[in-house]
Design a protein around this nucleic acid. Structure first.
Lengths: 155, 155
DNA sequence: TATTGTTATACTCTATAACTATA
DNA sequence: TATAGTTATAGAGTATAACAATA
């Protein structure tokens, strides 16, 4: 790319005050930071945040359906199918067709799945607390409450 | 996929309490919600959130360099290059090579760029306020403060 | 005909490696 | 030799369309 020359001085301290005043900018940055720590601490399990979310919901909601998972996690059906295939290959979940509606798929954890979910929940609970080390317990709780209040039942 | 049949009852109300207790889950959901509204309200400008962030930083930091932008926004150089090419094509930014170091690139907004940045900042300020309609002014401010305190200077 | 979930595929976003030019 | 930025490309994440099986 051809560019004109300049003798103007460089920009010294970067002013990002406008961006830092935006909720969306801040939530994205925090998400990226936490997901980095997540990747580092759960490497042994080979599961990404969304995949853990799916495992968790199946664990706490036996016989949850494909459609219910999509709605709860704002995932599109084709993408959830891939995640479920991966979890099935890792022998973490089992699939059942209800007699009452043979189109649907009901999901459950295997023994292995329950064990890994339990371990992961411990790792992640600790990880969450550590990733917010700048915040007191009260502040963290308050932060999460404010975030929930924001996206509420709509999403 | 072959699945066994079951006569067990469906899962009724989905319990997502564990996920909702996680900071990372909540920040991701809020980000997605805000970015959806962003897309809807800024469609006329044809800029995505990251592209707006770049435009904003260049506007508030004349002669900012490629490297400074990457550091501030946690972008990789090749991906920033693409964004800058798009902004250049839209005649929103200009590129200069400093006499002192002809490897570097200093960036500035064009007149058009300044105009569009100004308009976008108004749209986005309003959008941010509307997207957090469940929160009072005080709560929104507090929320942003807590988020900033979390990722602080490290990220 | 409508619904549940799958397959195939395209598009976007992010990441890595190799390169040019300056220093 | 090291640094700033670019190019090309690969991989992950997300989206749309068409389909099979069941209701």
């Amino acid at each position: 790319m051809p560019s004109k020359l300049t003798t103007e001085p460089a920009c010294e301290n970067v002013d990002s005050s406008f961006l830092r005043s935006l909720l969306g900018y801040n939530t994205r940055r925090v998400t990226l930071k936490i997901f980095d720590i997540f990747a580092a601490r759960t490497r042994a399990y080979g599961l990404k945040p969304v995949e853990f979310s799916v495992l968790n919901l199946i664990g706490h909601n036996p016989n949850i359906s494909h459609g219910q998972l999509c709605a709860e996690l704002a995932l599109l059906p084709p993408n959830l199918t891939k995640i479920l295939q991966k979890l099935t290959k890792k022998h973490l979940i089992q699939r059942f067709r209800p007699e009452s509606d043979k189109r649907a798929v009901y999901l459950k954890l295997t023994e292995t799945g329950q064990q890994q979910l339990h371990e992961l929940e411990i790792v992640i609970t600790k990880l969450e607390r550590d990733s917010a080390s700048n915040l007191s317990d009260e502040e963290l709780e308050q932060l999460i409450q404010l975030l929930q209040k924001n996206y509420g039942k709509t999403a």
